[in-house]
Simulated assay, not measured.
Amino acid sequence: MAHIDYFFSTLSPFTYLAGTRMEEVAAKHGATITYKPVDVTTLFGRTGGTPPKERHPSRQELRAQELTRQSKKLGMPLNLQPAFWPTNAAPSSYAIIAAQNAGGGDLGALVHGFLRAVWAEDKDISQDDVVRAMLADAGFDPGLADSGLLTGAETYAANLEEAVTRGVFGAPFYITDDGQRFWGQDRIADLDLHLSGQL
């Protein structure tokens, strides 16, 4: 059975634009998924990247244009200047890790719920009430926001180290069990073709 390690940030607009298409591809091929939220700003620094706000204006302008084009193409609302960005990604990331460990809900919906909250709903995903609501909406126990803190923090740190070791440098980033790496929501179709044996 195929497997996908999914490295992402709950603050990444390009991860938001991925929607749940990767989950649909995985289901099509019977592939399992391990969700690995990472601190993408630290990841940039560790792998030669630059956080968006520190990039040259020409790069920032193109990023804004590309986000607008992609959101229109995908039919997904996107606020280029969300009210709560950047914010602390740790609480949402810990909740995802705890939910994955607990099982019983829809992890893809949980991840996308946090991203939609940032980029389309102007919600602060660092706040406890938002985290609890997202967990409940995706079919998980809201209490995971409390019980998963210690394990979540340890796993979140370990995910970053694993990402650096395995050649991850941005989000979203997909690695298959045969070592193929795919960076960006615009490479999900290539991931699909690879799992089909066509790439």
Rank of each mutant, 00 (worst) to 15 (best):
Y35F: 15
F44R: 01
A89Y: 05
L67Y: 05
L11F: 10
I125P: 02
G113Q: 04
G103S: 10
L11V: 07
F7C: 10
K53G: 10
L17H: 08
I4M: 15
D122K: 05
G45K: 13
I97D: 02
A99H: 05
A98D: 06
H3C: 10
I33Q: 06
F84E: 08
K28I: 13
L17T: 07
H29A: 03
K123F: 08
I125M: 01
P52Y: 02
T87W: 05
W85G: 04
N79V: 01
M1A: 15
T32Y: 02
T42S: 13
F44I: 07
P86G: 00
S126M: 09
T20E: 14
A109L: 08
S58E: 14
V38T: 11
G30A: 08
T68I: 05
P91A: 01
N79D: 12
T41C: 10
L17M: 11
Q127F: 00
I4C: 05
P13F: 12
G19T: 05
M76A: 11
P77A: 09
I4L: 11
G48W: 12
P91H: 00
P37Y: 02
M22A: 10
A31L: 06
A95C: 04
I125S: 00
P82H: 04
E61P: 01
D124C: 00
L74V: 11
P51M: 12
T34E: 13
A117H: 05
W85P: 04
A109R: 14
V111F: 05
T41R: 14
T50A: 07
M22F: 10
K123M: 14
F7G: 02
G45P: 10
P52H: 00
G30Y: 05
T41F: 15
L110D: 07
S93V: 03
T34H: 06
E66N: 14
T50S: 13
Q127K: 14
T41D: 14
S93N: 08
G45F: 11
Q100Y: 00
S58M: 12
S92V: 00
P57Y: 08
N101W: 02
H56D: 15
P77H: 01
D5C: 14
S126T: 10
R21S: 13
R46Q: 15
L80C: 09
L115D: 04
T32S: 15
G104R: 13
H29G: 10
T15H: 01
T68Q: 14
Q127W: 06
V118A: 04
P13E: 07
N79A: 05
P82G: 07
V40W: 02
D106P: 04
D106E: 02
S9P: 01
S71A: 15
M1I: 15
N101M: 14
S126D: 09
G108K: 05
A31W: 03
Y94E: 06
G108N: 08
W119A: 00
A90S: 11
T20H: 08
A102Y: 01
E54H: 09
F114V: 07
G75K: 12
Y6I: 02
A18C: 11
P37M: 03
F84I: 06
L115S: 04
W119K: 01
L17R: 12
T87G: 06
